[in-house]
């Protein structure tokens, strides 16, 4: 019976694991709902920001503001958004693979690159592979709010202006559905203003304190918001990915339990048969 006891112990341990994965799935599902709601809530702001920006940018020359001006693409900076915690399937691997591929692609094009990363997982990935990280932020996921985006954006803008970075990309997981997310590399700097034809951007607006001054403060806001949106998308994607991963883990556990139970029953039966044979054999010998 020694063999069957081992199997029993294994069944118990798999069951425990299954309970954990099931609970994690339920937790991510409910958190995902909240994250999705937060994403939707940001949408009206996004629409209005774009319309105001389009309105203003239509009347300003591109060279007017450093955040708008094209300067070629010799020095490029990445902001990679990953999660702090694992157990979410290929979520972090996917994004890091894509980021590293892009990094080498740009490198062979003769660009200088600097890396910024959000999330413990991405940071660890890069550190293990000896990439230099300029700046990292961790501990955001779970209690993300707008001020995180402000901190990150102001750091990026400052570096963009002082260190003369030519382009900044944000690489993040875009939330498609709870089951799927796609890795996106989005250029946030220089800002591509939304196209508005001058006709609709009616010329008789009054600006306080003047169109240039409004634009000056609006452009950093736009970057801030782009970062905020990337963080939000990434958060929702992470929860979606975790939900899916935990769901398949629970299913695998179920399968494994079924297999082990069968094995246990077989072992038990074999033991009974063996005992019976021994008794019969003993009785035969006494005759």
């Amino acid at each position: 019976m020694a063999g069957s006891r081992d199997i029993l112990r294994r069944i118990r341990s798999v069951k425990n694991t299954q309970q954990i994965t099931k609970a994690m799935k339920a937790v991510s599902a409910s958190k995902l709902k909240k994250a999705q709601a937060a994403m939707l809530a940001a949408r009206p702001y996004a629409n209005m920001l774009v319309s105001v920006l389009g309105n203003l940018a239509a009347r300003a020359p591109r060279e007017y503001h450093p955040l708008l001006a094209h300067r070629g693409c010799r020095r490029i900076e990445f902001l990679i958004v990953t999660s702090d915690r694992g157990l979410c399937g290929a979520f972090n691997t996917n994004i890091m693979k894509r980021a590293v591929a892009l990094y080498h692609e740009k490198k062979t094009d003769g660009c200088d690159l600097t890396l910024n990363v959000v999330g413990r997982k991405g940071r660890d990935y890069l550190v293990r592979r000896d990439y230099a990280i300029r700046k990292d932020w961790t501990g955001i996921s779970g209690h993300l709010n707008y001020s995180h985006a402000q901190t990150i954006a102001s750091e990026i803008i400052e570096n963009y202006i002082n260190a003369e970075v030519d382009e900044v990309y944000v690489i993040y997981n875009e939330f498609k559905t709870a089951l799927s997310q796609t890795v996106i590399a989005e250029k946030v700097l220089p800002i591509e203003p939304p196209k508005t034809d001058i006709e609709t951007a009616s010329g008789d607006y009054i600006y306080e304190p003047g169109p240039e001054a409004v634009l000056d403060t609006l452009l950093p806001k736009h970057v801030e918001f782009q970062v905020y949106r990337a963080l939000r998308e990434s958060e929702a994607s992470e929860l979606g990915a975790r939900m899916t991963a935990m769901d398949s883990a629970s299913n695998n556990a179920k399968e494994m339990i079924a297999k082990l139970t069968l094995k246990y029953n077989k072992a038990r039966q074999a033991a009974i048969t063996k005992e019976l044979m021994e008794i019969i054999g003993g009785a035969e010998a006494l005759k």
Partner: peptide, 19 residues
Amino acid sequence: PGIEGEFGVLPGHTPFLTA
């Protein structure tokens, strides 16, 4: 609370953008 002072808006206001 406009940046250059408080302002009121009533229907029919002229197009206006302020910080």
